[in-house]
Computed example of a mutant assay.
Amino acid sequence: MHLRQTRDVLTDHLRRRAAGDLDGDLATNYHPDVVILHPDGESRGHDGVRALAARHGRYDGAVECHRLLASDQVGIFEWSGLGGRSGTMPMEGTESFVVRDGLIVAQTVHFSSAVEVGSPLADAV
């Protein structure tokens, strides 16, 4: 059996998330015991990925991947787009991955955001 390379896994991850296919992404790309480190702490397993996606995850048309790099078992991508409660907050982030046996076993997420466009704080700036 030919295992997928890290770049293939991450490309499929981005494609499935852009299509709104979280279930397919989990089944195809994530190890059941994945560990994710993120600004709020740590998430584990598919349930942790689901919770993180519900809280922060946006890979739909409002998010664009600018660069994807992969070497052996390690990959990283940089993205930017709009998020927040109203989908108008400019955001940018970097995610890194460890892929073993064709599955994501570890991930880190870092992102920053600005004030939401149209909010009272944005008007004050």
Rank of each mutant, 00 (worst) to 15 (best):
A62I: 10
V99C: 06
H46G: 07
P39D: 03
R44K: 07
A62R: 15
G84E: 02
P90V: 13
A106I: 08
I36Q: 03
G83F: 00
F97C: 07
V63G: 04
M91R: 07
F111D: 02
Q107D: 03
G48I: 02
R85I: 10
Y59T: 13
P90M: 13
L82Y: 00
G45C: 05
L68Q: 05
S43H: 01
D40H: 00
G75S: 07
E64S: 14
V35F: 02
R85W: 06
I76G: 01
G118F: 02
I104A: 11
T88C: 04
S112I: 08
D72R: 11
G102S: 12
I104W: 05
G84D: 01
P39M: 06
R58K: 13
F97W: 09
M91F: 09
F97Q: 03
Y30V: 07
P32L: 12
V105G: 05
A62H: 15
R50C: 11
V49G: 05
A70H: 11
F77M: 11
G84F: 05
G84P: 05
S96N: 03
Q107A: 12
Q73F: 04
A51E: 12
T28V: 15
C65W: 03
E78I: 01
D101Q: 11
W79Y: 13
V34T: 09
G83N: 05
G118K: 00
A106L: 08
A53W: 04
V35P: 01
Q73P: 01
V98Q: 11
H110V: 11
A70G: 07
G41A: 05
V99R: 01
G118Q: 02
V109I: 05
G61Y: 09
H31S: 15
G93R: 01
L103S: 04
D33V: 06
G41P: 08
E64H: 11
L37E: 09
I76E: 09
H46A: 13
I36T: 04
P90N: 12
N29F: 10
V115H: 00
I36Y: 00
D40Y: 05
D47W: 10
S43D: 04
Y30N: 06
D33P: 15
D101I: 03
V34G: 04
G48C: 08
A27C: 11
G83S: 13
P39V: 03
S43C: 03
D40V: 00
V99Q: 01
I76L: 12
H56D: 14
H110I: 08
G81Q: 02
L69P: 03
H38Y: 07
G81M: 00
V35H: 10
G75Y: 06
